[in-house]
């Protein structure tokens, strides 16, 4: 019998003000990719869902938003926790999901399998919340795009293996595409679809040089 406490406990202590605080953190991060936000309030989502990921879940998911959970999350107490605190329906169809959650080291399926929106309604796309081990001691990445003055840097540790390749494919679909929130424990960083990511290596920087004209 599953531990019922995990289902009922650990939500927002004050739904109105806690969700507002989490949303503002997330909104600031979405408006400034590369900026790290922190969820400081007390929240205890069931493992393996992280605190920031759980906070985003309770702030944005409700009965209007089908949620897709990674296989490991869907076998954890998370579905019950989400149902009790958020009331959001689960879906196994990735293209129906408004939000998709991944625990740390979860394999990343093709981003194209999620809702990408249409050319007329690019907003009807999935937002992926991906847990990584850390946001600042992994591979250094350079970000550019709207919300960033020149460039910004993050160094997520534990990014899914082919994320960068998939992300550049996602950017090529603009204005369609998914948006991503990377979470690590209490911290989060947002990657809207407009964000360009390049790895700080010599070969990548050569690849970034615009092709000669003609």
């Amino acid at each position: 019998m599953p531990d019922r406490t995990e289902t009922f406990a650990g939500g927002f202590a004050n739904a109105v003000f806690d969700s507002q605080a989490v949303f503002r953190t997330l909104m600031d991060c979405m408006a400034r990719p590369g900026q790290t936000g922190e969820v400081t309030l007390s929240l205890a989502p069931p493992a393996p869902l992280g605190i920031a990921a759980g906070a985003v879940m309770l702030t944005l998911c409700d009965h209007d938003t089908p949620v897709w959970l990674s296989p490991k999350l869907s076998q954890s107490p998370v579905p019950g926790w989400l149902a009790f605190h958020g009331g959001a329906p689960l879906t196994t169809e990735r293209h129906e999901a408004r939000f998709a959650f991944f625990e740390g080291r979860a394999p990343l399926p093709s981003l194209g399998a999620f809702a990408l929106g249409s050319q007329e309604y690019p907003d009807r796309s999935t937002t992926l919340i991906i847990e990584v081990a850390s946001l600042d001691n992994g591979q250094p990445l350079t970000l550019s795009g709207p919300g960033i003055r020149d460039t910004a840097g993050i160094a997520p540790n534990g990014l899914p293996a082919d994320f960068l390749r998939q992300w550049s494919g996602n950017g090529a679909l603009f204005p369609r595409g998914v948006d991503v929130v990377l979470t690590a424990g209490r911290r989060l960083v947002a990657l809207p679809r407009t964000c360009k990511i390049t790895a700080k290596t010599l070969t990548e920087s050569v690849a970034e040089t615009p092709a000669s004209e003609g």
């Binding site: 949303f23 979405m30 944005l60 209007d64 907003d123 709207p146 948006d179 679809r193 407009t194």
Partner: peptide
């Protein structure tokens, strides 16, 4: 508020 907040995040992602 959640509905509007979701719209705001998508609006920021698609300037």
């Amino acid at each position: 508020k959640r509905m509007i907040r979701r719209a705001i995040l998508k609006a920021i992602a698609i300037p």
